[in-house]
């Protein structure tokens, strides 16, 4: 039985799904400043949430970034600059180039992206298919991905990143 199939069965239990979403939401808020769009593309974007971009750009940067800083608030880093850097470190630029990210389904806003994924509500492929490179041994890939996630999280907490929960665009 695949992980997806086990999860799909488990999500049918309301208590499990509620508890899972609570943990998912808190973890993702802390690690990625997740916006709970329910249409997660983190595994394509180097584990940087593109919905933090003021323009919610899911397919690449707008033309407004000044040397890696956001046109909306120049003190903040362009979210796509962070995505580009993180994806480069993971050697997964192919994930950005090859994936057209459709517009989010707003009915799923504020719901569990994992549940949506296993229930087949998302158009993007399963997170397990994109997370790790096929040509690399998992033993090397898993620590690399985990390290990058923690590094991004550190930048998010300490650096001039857009944290949507901290500040809306200035007046």
């Amino acid at each position: 039985m695949s992980v997806d199939a086990i999860l799909e069965r488990a999500f049918q239990n309301r208590i499990f799904s509620q508890a899972f979403f609570l943990v998912e939401r808190k973890m993702k808020e802390w690690l990625f400043d997740c916006q709970s769009c329910g249409n997660c593309v983190l595994s394509h974007t180097g584990f940087i949430c593109p919905m933090r971009c003021p323009k919610s750009q899911r397919n690449g940067p707008c033309g407004g970034a000044m040397d890696g800083h956001c046109e909306v608030d120049i003190s903040k880093r362009c979210v796509w600059d962070e995505i580009w850097e993180s994806t480069n470190r993971l050697h997964r630029i192919d994930l950005l180039t090859n994936n057209y990210e459709g517009p989010p389904d707003w009915r799923l806003y504020g719901t569990s992206a994992w549940e949506n994924m296993v229930a087949g509500r998302l158009e993007s492929p399963s997170i397990f298919e994109t997370l790790f490179r096929k040509d690399e041994p998992l033993l090397r890939e898993v620590p690399r991905v985990v390290f990058q996630i923690l590094r991004n999280c550190y930048n998010l907490i300490t650096g001039p990143s857009w944290r949507r929960y901290e500040g809306r665009p200035p007046l």
Binding site: P54, K55, S56, Q57, R58, N59, G60, C62, G63, G64, E71, V72, Y100, E101, G102, P103, W106, P169, P170, L171
Partner: peptide, 27 residues
Amino acid sequence: LTGDYVSLGDHPGAKPVFDLDSVSLLH
């Protein structure tokens, strides 16, 4: 086009939409 951000204009309090981006609009 994607469009400039709302707060840079003369109605800075308007709701920014950005439902699609320039790529999904072309799509």
